[in-house]
């Protein structure tokens, strides 16, 4: 983690105390914009509504910044609650159905809640990539988002295969630290 990176709770404090610190608000969007947008995109299945809902989530977060209590949970969880409330409101308007029953669901019910939760976390993970160096970020983006093999990445970047492998390893280790700093700790997978 970059030493200059401000913790989430500190960001919220800046937003609340300075009555809407625009730099802090922009940073909050950088960290959670992708999670919020991807999540509401799955909920609404509509790009236009997704933009409107994303905007609403951040506006509400800005308004309620002074209600965030770090002792009660992470900023991500707090923002997730706001996003769910916004989605509730949208569903009420759409079909008079009150709320999202047990977990998030799409308006047409085609997305499983587990996928939705994965998207919420995944959005935060994708945003955390920004903290990596461009070299490390690139190899992970090519591997996970473009599904290139290590050899293909080496060809794309015109660098030795060994360098790509080494960089991938170091990038994953760095991601582990960055995510831990943002309260995202993966469960270790036991192998025999």
């Amino acid at each position: 983690m970059s030493e200059s990176e401000v913790a989430d709770a500190e960001l919220m404090r800046s937003i609340a105390e300075r009555n809407g610190d625009s730099d802090a608000t922009r940073e909050l969007y950088k960290r959670y914009g992708r999670a919020v947008y991807s999540w509401v995109r799955k909920i609404t299945m509509d790009p236009g509504k997704s933009e409107d809902l994303t905007q609403e989530v951040f506006v509400r977060a800005w308004r309620k910044a002074n209600t965030y209590d770090p002792t009660r949970g992470s900023v991500g969880a707090w923002l997730y609650g706001i996003a769910r409330n916004c989605a509730h409101d949208l569903l009420r308007k759409k079909s008079d159905v009150v709320g999202l029953p047990d977990g998030p669901e799409t308006i047409d019910g085609t997305v499983e809640p587990a996928d939705i939760e994965a998207i919420w976390i995944g959005g935060q993970v994708a945003s955390a990539l920004e903290v990596l160096s461009p070299e490390q970020r690139t190899v992970l983006e090519l591997a996970y988002f473009e599904h290139l093999t290590q050899k293909e990445i080496a060809e794309r970047l015109d660098m030795p295969l060994g360098t790509v492998k080494s960089r991938t390893f170091k990038a994953l280790k760095r991601m582990k630290d960055v995510l831990a700093s943002r309260g995202i700790v993966p469960e270790a997978v036991e192998r025999g």
């Binding site: 992708r34 999670a35 994965a118 998207i119 995944g122 959005g123 993970v125 996970y144 994953l172």
Partner: peptide, 8 residues
């Protein structure tokens, strides 16, 4: 987690 990120 990275695979989840790819879903977004």
């Amino acid at each position: 987690l990275m695979e989840a990120a790819a879903l977004t």
